[in-house]
């Protein structure tokens, strides 16, 4: 145990000290590949990266090291990969919805996510569950909407930070349905979730694993789920579309990216390897445990999705004056 810990530490050190040089860019992976996770350890992106890393290592025949580079809403880590050598050895695994929001939230962003980063493939989509504290007199989405219309500004929607996906989602819904509710920012998803369980705030849009245990325990009332289909774990929850809620595509999208301008052969190899890994049954099970589904879209579909979302989210941010500067 201790020995493998030391080995890992050495591998991490080696990964950090090896200076990538463009001259080395060849058709194969010549040294350790790093997956930068731009958040602190323990989150969904981090767990995904640590699941994928050992499998990717087998596929490409080089050591794959996960490197946490938290800070600046994920922009510090993303910037590091955007400015890395264009040799395909620096990967970035992150919440790409947040990344799509970054250009409109941060006017002085130090990189352009569409020009400096290139997609390898989407990894996972995790839908949001809309849940309310039992003190809210609503057992269905319809009842919630009419309650919100009758009591403008009374309901407080907890989110995990200004300019995050679950802040933008209730803003989109309020706009689409013509309702008015307070958006209350918290420091992270766990704090937001706690606040809705305690009744400090009343409404939350949050991941399946973070929300369903409370729904099952009757500490929260589940009303609807985003995404294209109902949940296997909670088949009685209607989808946003069925419940006539806008923003049905809301949720967490995790994707793998690489420095733009990397050799196309290597990106293609990464794409193939990633699809192969995501098709493995144990990975699929682990991703379901994380409250999501495998989303093995290749670079082209990812690029389209990303461009559309940058545009759509940019409009939401501008129309509602959200600032994340």
């Amino acid at each position: 145990m201790l020995r493998s810990f030391c080995l890992l530490a050495m591998a991490a050190l080696a990964g950090a000290t090896l200076q990538p040089s463009p001259a080395e860019a060849q058709q194969s992976f010549s040294r350790a590949v790093r997956i930068v996770v731009p958040y602190a350890p323990g989150g969904t992106s981090d767990i995904l990266a640590r699941l994928i890393a050992p499998k990717l290592q087998e596929e490409i025949g080089q050591a794959v090291v996960v490197e946490n580079k938290p800070g600046g809403s994920g922009n510090i880590g993303a910037d590091a990969v955007a400015k890395a050598a264009k040799d395909g050895h620096s990967l970035l695994l992150l919440d790409v919805g947040t990344l799509a929001l970054a250009p409109s939230l941060f006017p002085d962003l130090t990189f352009d996510p569409q020009k400096d980063l290139a997609p390898v493939g989407m990894v996972m989509f995790a839908p949001y569950v809309l849940a309310v504290n039992p003190s809210v007199p609503a057992k269905t989405t319809g009842e919630l909407v009419s309650y919100a219309k009758a009591n403008p500004g009374k309901l407080a929607v907890a989110n995990s930070g200004i300019g995050g996906m679950n802040h933008v989602t209730p803003v989109r819904i309020a706009k689409g349905l013509g309702i008015e509710w307070k958006n209350v920012p918290y420091r992270g998803g766990a704090a937001a979730s706690r606040a809705v369980v305690s009744g400090e705030s009343q409404v939350i849009f949050n991941g399946v694993t973070a929300t369903m245990p409370f729904v099952k325990n009757k500490q929260l009332v589940g009303l609807a789920v985003s995404g294209p289909a109902r949940l296997k774990a909670a088949p009685d929850l209607p989808t946003f579309a069925e419940a006539k809620l806008p923003a049905g595509d809301a949720g967490t999208w995790q994707g793998l990216m690489v420095t733009a301008g990397s050799p196309p052969e290597l990106v293609a190899r990464l794409d193939t390897a990633l699809r192969k890994i995501l098709a493995m049954p144990d990975i699929a099970t682990k991703i379901e445990d994380l409250g999501g589904t495998v989303k093995a879209d290749g670079p082209a579909a990812f690029r389209t999705w990303f461009a559309e979302n940058v545009k759509m989210l940019g409009e939401v941010v501008r129309e509602n004056g959200i600032k994340g500067e």
């Binding site: 323990g42 766990a190 369980v197 694993t209 369903m212 245990p213 099952k216 325990n217 682990k286």
Partner: peptide, 25 residues
């Protein structure tokens, strides 16, 4: 199932990796 600090949040991640749903139950 609510973490009190950053380390506990990491512990939740650990539980999830072992297929255990953190939560009140």
């Amino acid at each position: 199932g609510i973490p009190a600090n950053a380390l506990m949040a990491l512990m939740i991640g650990a539980l999830m990796m072992h297929g255990i749903q953190p939560g009140p139950q």
